[in-house]
Amino acid sequence: MSLRGELLAFVRGDRGADRVVPRSGQSARLTFATAAAMAFLAVFAMALSMASGRLADRWSSALAQSSTIRISAPPAEIEAQTWAVLAVLEQTPGIESARALSDEEQQALLAPWFGPDLPLDDLPVPQLVEITETADGYDADGLRQRLAAEAPGAVLDDHDRWRRPLAEAAGRLRILGWLAMVLILAATAGMVTLAAQSALSANEQVIRVLRLVGARDSYIARAFVRRFTIRALTGAALGMVVGLLAVAILPSARDTAAILTGLSFSGASWFWPLIIPPLAAATAFTATRIAAFRTLRGLQ
């Protein structure tokens, strides 16, 4: 029978085929528990992947829309160069707004490292100019050239060197999340295969009787495949529900958007874990089918 025919026969079910194999408690419990545990972990892997992706996207887009100009010059020239920079920026296409940070703002930026009582006047702290870009952005190389001419102490930081590693990290975190899902599925397949092989070995005599009375391999395999697939499906459904509840009761994301507090789903992504039980069932279907046919080939 073709795989399509097998799937149709599987969906239709066969009460007779379901009954010919005795219920084996140990392998049933093992498959159910494995599927439940793996689905629970898969929910977390999925949540981690999505949360890290969201977080990195947020960082990346926030940095992508802004740039900074740092003006390092003798104290007497700082103000003049700042005005020159602002004048250049005003005439540069792609710049939505630009402003020089006040002393208080610069002090607040340095406070985490030097404390709140930093004597800013006594230190050669460079002046920072914050730029907000339009959606189209600006020509960074052209701006650098004009700044070099108008304000030699000005250095443009378009955040590219921060943004690129973040984008790479985001991609890697996403891949790691999905890799974890693949590993979980592979582990599920391995465990289901072992449980199926154990059940097939324990029922060798049953299989011999079925072959004796004219059963085809596809019929015998279906009796095992259907049982293990249903166990994996129900186990994974339970694990998914528990996993979703666990994710739901985690602390919600704060403004700091730390990775641990942001480990959750948002909006429609709450529906993504619904693919876990069918995936577990498909994995069990395939793993049991392969194990069953391999075992049956060894029996005449």
Binding site: R211, L212, V213, A215, L296, R297, Q300
Partner: peptide
């Protein structure tokens, strides 16, 4: 193997 199964449907053992 399917052929053997079909043959056995014609044999009672």
């Amino acid at each position: 193997r399917d052929g053997i199964a079909d043959i056995r449907q014609r044999i009672g053992v």
